[in-house]
Design a protein around this nucleic acid. Structure first.
Length: 255
DNA sequence: ATGCCTCAGCTCCTGAGA
């Protein structure tokens, strides 16, 4: 089973690239973030023609998440039960016996800002949700755009970005708290190239200079950890014309 | 440079992203 996550920064703009990528990379589940479209605009027919089912949770202008899957997704839950939120950031479903949570974590803007406080509250809500889901679903994958780096190895300029957004101790505390629930960063289960990132700023030729951050993650539960056989970041779509600023991350699990 | 790109929208500027 292959699962992937990709922040596509507008599905309206990127749909052809997503379909091309799925054809070249026929994963079983693809979690998308930043659809930036209302529910009525979601191109379900295009995915169906490509042989994929879809569950989506859109929003006007911002956010929006979807789960694209070969087999139908079941027990679908949108956003975090018990956490009141007017943004569409989380979609959860069971696919082929695996509980899959696709999430678009808040950006946070800057430490001390209202948006940073919202990010902290959202992270607490997400942790409670994941903790509850793990009780009934030992086979669980939490993937998406986390907007948080684990440590300096995920940052192109650790000194310059110290305590900046995506790199603060408060954000990393919450990321470690997710890990402490019994989850594992599938990317670091394997030897990886140094300076591996999943996002590069559109400005200043950041991709060409490899000035990036690793902020898109696939966390797997204790039960799945021994079954993970690979995890890679696919930089190819970032070389497309009009690319997303994020690259897909792909994990393979032998169920 | 409180900017540089990119995208959406009450679109010819602004807010947000990260």
């Amino acid at each position: 089973m292959k699962l992937a996550t990709w922040n596509i920064n507008s599905l309206t703009v990127r749909l052809p690239q997503v379909l091309d990528w799925l054809q070249a990379n026929p994963v079983d589940v693809l979690a998308l973030q930043e659809l930036k479209m209302t529910n009525d605009k979601f191109p379900a027919d295009a995915f169906a023609q490509a042989g994929y089912c879809a569950q989506w949770f859109g929003q006007k202008t911002y956010n929006g998440v979807a789960l694209i899957s070969r087999t139908p997704a079941e027990q679908v839950v949108k956003n975090i039960p018990g956490f009141d939120d007017d943004m569409s950031r989380v979609i959860t479903a069971t696919v082929d016996g695996v509980r899959v949570i696709g999430a678009y974590f808040p950006n946070g803007q800057a430490p001390g800002s209202d948006k940073f406080e919202y990010k902290m509250e959202w992270l607490k809500g997400l942790r409670a949700w994941v903790k509850a889901e793990l009780v009934t679903h030992p086979n669980l994958v939490l993937m998406g755009d986390y907007n948080i780096t684990f440590d300096d190895s995920d940052v192109w300029d650790p000194e310059g970005m110290r305590d900046q957004i995506h790199c603060t101790e408060e954000e990393r505390y919450h990321l470690r708290a997710l890990i402490a629930l019994g989850l594992h960063d599938s990317y670091r289960l394997f030897e990886q190239p140094t300076k591996s990132y999943s996002w590069w700023d559109y400005r200043d030729f950041a991709f060409r200079r490899n000035r990036g951050l690793r902020i898109d993650h696939i966390l797997v539960s204790n039960a799945l950890k021994p079954l993970v056989t690979s995890c890679v970041i696919d930089k190819q779509p970032r070389t497309n014309e009009r690319p997303s600023d994020h690259a897909p991350v792909v994990v393979e699990i032998t169920l």
